[in-house]
Amino acid sequence: MSAPSGVDLHGDAQRVLSGWRPADRQQQALREAFGALLAARADACSRSCAPGHLTASAIVLDADAEHVLLTLHPRVGAWLQLGGHCEPEDSSLAGAALREATEESGIAGLEIVPDPVHLDVHGITCSLGSPTRHFDVRYAVRAPRGATAVRSAESDDLRWWPVRDLPADSDLREPVAAALAAAQIDR
């Protein structure tokens, strides 16, 4: 999925986030913080933006929306949604999330819900080796029926988890619930 012709990733991020209307005040406050970062920094979508940068991730649901695909992240040591840094060739946040989900799952034919479902800001030491913050824009993604995931080199493990029985230490209940709600709209 790519942005309309002539729209760069930074412009797409501004358009998408300014048009998205989250359901609760906490998500609204995060949306405003993401907008402020984008307004202040032309490089906000690049991992070289040391104070923090946008990332794109995918809550990948199976065809029946009964399971979510999670990766055991090697640096973080926790089960997380698929996703990561935006790349220079990405022209949209949704496209970056879909690219990351495809690369990290090995699943062809993933379908993305075009609007974000959840935002999160978290501190991390990413590939540059310096502490920073990820301003993560999360999307709902549906896998085709019978999809088999293949672990990439970016993961210690890759597993389908029941949406009602996530790993004990997971903080993904809220974003998974948001993805389920978005997936219901598109059925």
Rank of each mutant, 00 (worst) to 15 (best):
V163K: 03
A97I: 06
S170A: 15
R187M: 04
D90L: 00
T71G: 15
G52E: 03
C86Q: 03
A3F: 01
A177L: 07
A168S: 11
Q26K: 07
A65R: 14
P175R: 00
E87D: 07
A97F: 13
V176Q: 06
R187W: 07
A147C: 09
R187F: 03
S46I: 07
V176M: 10
L37E: 03
L82E: 04
L54Q: 03
R159A: 13
I185Y: 13
W160A: 12
L72V: 02
H134K: 11
A78P: 00
T148E: 15
E32A: 10
L80W: 13
I107G: 02
M1A: 13
E89K: 03
D90S: 00
T102E: 09
L110T: 08
V137R: 00
L38Q: 05
H73L: 10
L61Y: 14
S5Y: 06
I59M: 15
T102P: 06
E32I: 06
R41T: 04
L98E: 04
R47D: 02
A36S: 11
H10A: 02
L80P: 01
S170K: 10
E32Y: 09
T55R: 08
L9E: 00
A94K: 01
L17A: 05
S155H: 08
D62R: 14
A178L: 09
P162Y: 12
L17N: 01
S92H: 01
A149M: 11
L82R: 08
P175G: 02
A97V: 01
V121S: 07
A63M: 05
R41G: 02
D115Y: 07
Y139V: 03
L37Y: 06
T71L: 14
A36Y: 09
L158E: 05
V60G: 01
W20D: 05
C86N: 14
D8T: 01
D12W: 00
D90E: 01
A42F: 01
L110W: 11
A177I: 04
A153G: 09
D157M: 06
V7K: 00
A179M: 10
D156L: 15
V113N: 04
G146Y: 00
G95M: 07
P131V: 14
E174G: 05
E89W: 07
G129Q: 01
M1C: 11
G123S: 12
R15V: 07
G95T: 08
V163F: 09
L38T: 10
L110Q: 09
A33S: 14
W79C: 03
C86L: 12
L128G: 06
E100D: 09
P114I: 06
C86R: 02
P22M: 09
V68N: 04
W20P: 05
V68A: 13
L80I: 02
A40M: 05
V16F: 11
H85N: 15
A78N: 02
G84K: 04
R99K: 10
W161M: 11
D136Q: 13
L30K: 10
W20M: 07
A143T: 06
